[in-house]
Amino acid sequence: MKRILLLMASLAALVPASAQYSFNGELLDRLAEAYRKGDPRAVKAVEEVAAEADSTLLGMEPLTVTAKKQLPPSGDRRDYLSLSPYWWPDPSKPDGLPYIRRDGERNPEVYDCPERENGDRLGTVTRTLAVLYRVTGDERYAEKCAQLLRTWFLDPRLGMNPNMTYAQLIRGRQTIRGTGIIDSRRMAFALNAAQLIDSSPAWSDYDRRELREWARTFLYWMEHSVNGQKELHAANNHGLWYDAIRLMTARAAGLDDRVREIACESVKPRFAKQVAGDGTLPEELVRTLSLHYSTFVLEALSTARNVARAEGVELWEMPEAQRALEYLIPYYESPEKWPWPQIKPFAQRRGAALLYEAGLALDRPEWVETARRIGFHTSKADFEAMLHFELQ
């Protein structure tokens, strides 16, 4: 009976998902339709995530950028602060300073600055609640999502200042860096969650207006700060994620014309330059986690694609995108055969998700079948588990 009532509510709350989110709107449509029709796989996926949300997410304390012990150099607790993850004390120096790089080895000191993990959780939880709302129509999920968004972005005492000036600092080094902007993809994911609860009374005109203004201010900082100008010219995954974050932020700011501009004038030429003739991504092959980072580039492209599709831009149609994915397919099936460095295990579900999305977009049934064969196996009860119910 509860599910029947929620389905009735969802008919009023749910409208077709246009391709404007940081994830594939088509997958959301497929999930919602299958759930309404009683597909046992969809029902199981949604009910498992709803149970987790009801027991944990609805009662969680709002996350905030101010929940830190160490202040950033500005002295303003509302400025985002994080440490670069692969930098460690120099054993040849008495004080260990300046830190030196050990690629792929995460220094546990990064957890001394909680906004990195809190931002990641914010992006996952808000999207999970928002997808649950869109599928079930249950206003509790929209209300909690709205509360989390207001606290992180809009609260006059706790809300994050719209900049990443102090992201991924390195102890003992004072150089202004652009690399920390990549941390903001987590908050940009949360910005996009607001669009999913836009039809809910829990998300007011004031909330909508203020978040749009926050996004516009952040986009201006990204494009005009020294940090942002440095990241704009990054040749590896950082550059592509810079564009993906700009796209998500422009969408949240209501700047649809900028979305098409960034996708066509920056994402396309940037990605084309990164892919070699054999489909490899040379900038990522030098990393100690090269399969991860090669996939990370395609995940940035996927994010950009899903935002830009509403403006008539299909990034999977790029020959370079298909060439890169084709190269990676055998290693998504058998990661142990990857011929380049990969010092940690690779989660195959990431490859399956990319193949499934691209296969549906390009009508490549062989890619879809490969994705199903690999499967999307996860112990997490979140929005991704729901969206990929057909691969489980």
Rank of each mutant, 00 (worst) to 15 (best):
S22T: 09
E320M: 10
T249W: 13
R150D: 15
D278F: 03
P40E: 08
A347C: 09
E231L: 01
F346N: 07
N306F: 01
R260F: 01
F23A: 14
D198T: 06
K37A: 14
N236Q: 03
L81E: 12
Y327M: 12
A250W: 13
F153Y: 14
F271N: 07
L219K: 04
N227P: 09
R212G: 12
G180Y: 00
P201S: 11
L28Y: 06
R209E: 08
T64I: 04
K68H: 11
A215R: 06
P62R: 02
R3W: 10
I170W: 00
C113V: 04
S204T: 15
G277M: 06
L71V: 03
E299N: 12
R209W: 05
S92K: 03
P269V: 06
A53W: 03
R260M: 07
D205Y: 03
K344S: 05
I245N: 13
H388L: 04
K69F: 12
E61W: 02
E265P: 05
R127N: 08
L325T: 11
Q147G: 11
V259R: 07
Y99D: 00
S10D: 04
R186L: 04
D256Q: 08
R186E: 09
T217Y: 00
T175E: 14
L129D: 15
A308I: 00
N24E: 15
L27G: 08
L57G: 10
Q348K: 09
A9W: 11
A215G: 06
L97W: 00
G279W: 08
Y206S: 11
E333V: 04
A253F: 14
Q342F: 07
V46N: 09
V297D: 14
D90G: 00
A272H: 04
D120I: 15
P62H: 00
G75T: 12
T66N: 02
V226E: 12
P330I: 14
E33C: 14
R134K: 09
M160G: 10
W367N: 15
Y356S: 14
Q274H: 04
L355H: 04
F153V: 15
E231A: 03
L325K: 14
K380Q: 06
L191Y: 07
E284Q: 07
M8H: 12
A263G: 07
W241L: 10
P345K: 09
T124E: 14
F153I: 12
A142Y: 09
Q322W: 02
P16K: 11
G312W: 04
R209Q: 10
G359R: 08
R270A: 12
W338D: 09
P72L: 02
S379I: 07
C113M: 03
Y220D: 13
P98R: 00
E231F: 02
A9Q: 15
I4L: 13
G96D: 02
L7F: 01
A215V: 07
E357M: 01
F218H: 15
T64N: 09
R41K: 09
A253M: 15
R77L: 11
L301T: 13
A45S: 07
S74I: 10
A51P: 10
I374N: 15
A324Q: 03
Q174C: 00
K337N: 13
K268L: 05
R77S: 06
R30Y: 06
P335Y: 06
L291S: 08
P98A: 01
E333I: 06
G159N: 08
V368H: 07
Y206V: 15
